[in-house]
């Protein structure tokens, strides 16, 4: 084998090496380390005293009621956030998709919350949701409606968090869908109007299928993102009241110092759940998505 041959064989691997090192160090190694930790009773004071305990952490996890409570909360949060955001953002996008000055203004307005830090947003909404002095109850009272306890009651806290998350995220998704809508050739709509299609029929037989790739993309990244919700919970409720807003990632965070092995096991379960969900989505929906 000549010198030239060798270099042409090695060169491609050399080229991708920097990226592979990055992925190895920051993705693959942490995953394996997480799996490793989840099988140990980890001693934070003296790592040398850590003990391999097999699947005990997992057994412990699945035996605790609070884990199911937290998992249920996360699922509810994800389901509600994804569903509400998708429906609302499609509706708003259809409304503002025509490229006029007014619509651009509306789009900019809806997008603005997305560029503000979630910490600031959470703080502002906490003030507004304050039951006795907050703005929201003030409004409700002044129009004669019953007030709410918002974040301070276990029956309304989750709904309040979902509300803030949807409010913060929706502008971004509206933008994606508007772009998708504007990419649909207007002559297709003209053909449909000549085919005597009703507005509703045009929407679900033409518009929705045409933007299905973007909807599918949003569905997946939002599901993954929502399952990992942390900042809103951390800022607004600390998982309370009475664990009613505690979610998986916040639960992991709570156990970060007291029981690292246990927290790692929860992390592994979270990863698995997201993996399964994504797989199921692809299985169920991929053939319904229309790629050009």
């Amino acid at each position: 084998m000549g010198k030239k041959r060798v270099s042409s064989v090695i060169r491609p691997y050399l080229m991708i090496l920097p990226a592979m090192i990055g992925i190895g160090v920051f993705v693959i190694y942490p995953i394996f380390y997480l799996a490793y930790l989840s099988l140990h009773k980890y001693n934070l004071m003296n790592p040398a005293k850590s003990k391999f305990i097999g699947l005990d952490n997992y057994a412990d996890l699945f035996a605790r009621d609070e884990f199911y409570k937290v998992l249920g909360n996360t699922a509810l949060y994800t389901f509600a956030t994804v569903l509400i955001t998708l429906v609302l953002s499609v509706a708003i996008a259809v409304w503002v998709s025509k490229n006029t000055k007014f619509n651009q203004f509306i789009q900019a307005g809806i997008f603005t919350p997305h560029i503000v830090s979630i910490v600031s947003i959470a703080l502002v909404w906490m003030w507004m949701m304050e039951p006795s002095l907050g703005f929201l109850n003030y409004i409700l009272k002044s129009v004669g409606l019953p007030t709410s306890q918002w974040l301070q009651s276990s029956s309304t806290a989750m709904a309040s968090i979902i509300f803030v998350s949807v409010w913060q995220g929706i502008g971004y998704y509206v933008l994606i869908i508007v772009a998708a809508l504007q990419g649909v050739s207007p002559s297709i709509y003209e053909a449909a109007s000549l085919d005597n299609a009703s507005k509703w029929k045009i929407f679900y037989k033409i518009t929705l299928p045409m933007i299905s790739p973007q909807l599918f993309f949003i569905l997946i990244i939002m599901t993954i993102g929502s399952f990992k919700v942390f900042d809103t919970v951390r800022m607004m409720t600390l998982g309370g009241p009475n664990n009613s807003t505690n979610t998986l990632v916040y639960y992991i965070y709570q156990n970060r110092t007291t029981n690292i092995g246990y927290a790692s096991a929860t992390g592994m379960v979270l990863m698995l759940v997201i993996g399964i969900l994504t797989f199921v989505y692809f299985r169920m929906l991929a053939n319904k998505v229309h790629y050009q």
């Binding site: 002559s187 297709i188 053909a191 449909a192």
Partner: peptide, 15 residues
């Protein structure tokens, strides 16, 4: 009571 054939055909690509 009119039908039209478009320059770019305007076929519904998802159907």
């Amino acid at each position: 009571g009119i039908a039209m054939v478009f320059q770019n055909y305007a076929i519904y690509p998802t159907m």
